[in-house]
């Protein structure tokens, strides 16, 4: 019987073991922290913390290796899926995941992630879409919405000259090697719960050797969006979700019967 510290009290929620006991450098209200926590909770629940190797990317999540209580490497900009491939091919019984932002994965690293998915590489990609380049100060990303103002699209993204946003979960779902490609959002408790379930599924796909899995997480960037954290959640819901619908874009039918 688990009654925690108090005789008649149980712990409903506590910080996962797979997170380091350190402060993050993320801005107040940034949902990177939520995404980190969810991944850590999944690693705890699956009891794989001590056989997991993460691959950090370049961008705000460059220091992810300081925050996860697992082995970690740090990849050049966009190359995390290639690095993860090298690790997974050498240590196929380990859990290998990349944690990448939208500039990293959907712009400079699109080649690496598409090729990894097409190979059915047995890795999990956690993809954070916050519609801009966070670390360099809010420039236009491949995910920036049409009309969205950023420091490099000061008049709003003009699709005539700056093109259209990249819908990564849909795009990667078209590849045969992809077993699981879904989009979730981190803007309210219900969606956070759904995001966690998707992350668990993605890691279970890998644990079962079913090939490439990716969870795209719609995320906020209050600082660069110039909003309070609460305003940014609202903007995500109202502006981003219509363009980036939450949904399952590819789910390997073999997952249907699985319970975890």
């Amino acid at each position: 019987m688990d009654t925690a510290q108090h005789e008649l009290e149980q712990v409903v929620y506590q910080r996962p073991e797979s997170l380091m006991e350190v402060d993050t450098h993320y801005c107040p209200g940034c949902t990177h922290g939520v995404a980190h926590r969810l991944v850590a909770e999944v690693l705890d629940e699956m009891q794989v913390r001590q056989r997991t190797i993460g691959v950090a990317s370049v961008g705000c999540s460059v220091f992810a290796y300081n925050y996860f209580n697992t082995d970690f490497v740090q990849a050049p900009h966009g190359r995390a899926p290639a690095m993860a491939t090298g690790i997974k091919r050498c240590l196929p019984d380990r859990i290998v995941f990349t944690y990448q932002g939208d500039g990293d994965m959907a712009s400079i690293g699109m080649g690496e992630v598409v090729a990894a998915a097409a190979r059915g590489e047995n890795i999990t990609v956690v993809f954070i879409n916050n519609a801009n380049y966070g670390m360099t100060g809010g420039q236009m990303a491949p995910t920036t919405l049409p009309g969205q103002k950023t420091t490099s699209s000061p008049n709003g993204r003009d699709v005539e000259t700056q093109g259209f946003p990249m819908q990564a979960a849909e795009l990667l779902a078209t590849l045969e090697g992809t077993s699981y490609s879904v989009r979730r959002s981190l803007h309210d408790p219900k969606n956070v719960r759904m995001a966690k379930k998707a992350l668990r599924t993605a890691f279970e796909v890998q644990a079962r050797g079913m090939g490439f899995s990716i969870v795209e997480l719609l995320s906020v960037c209050p600082t660069n969006w110039g909003m309070t954290p609460l305003q940014s959640l609202k903007w995500l819901e109202e502006a981003m979700i219509p363009f980036y619908p939450i949904g399952d874009y590819k789910v390997n039918p073999a997952l249907a019967g699985l319970r975890f």
Partner: peptide, 12 residues
């Protein structure tokens, strides 16, 4: 690019 970064990961 892919090859050298696979090497990087594997070398780690």
């Amino acid at each position: 690019l892919g090859a050298i970064n696979m090497v990087y990961g594997a070398a780690c």
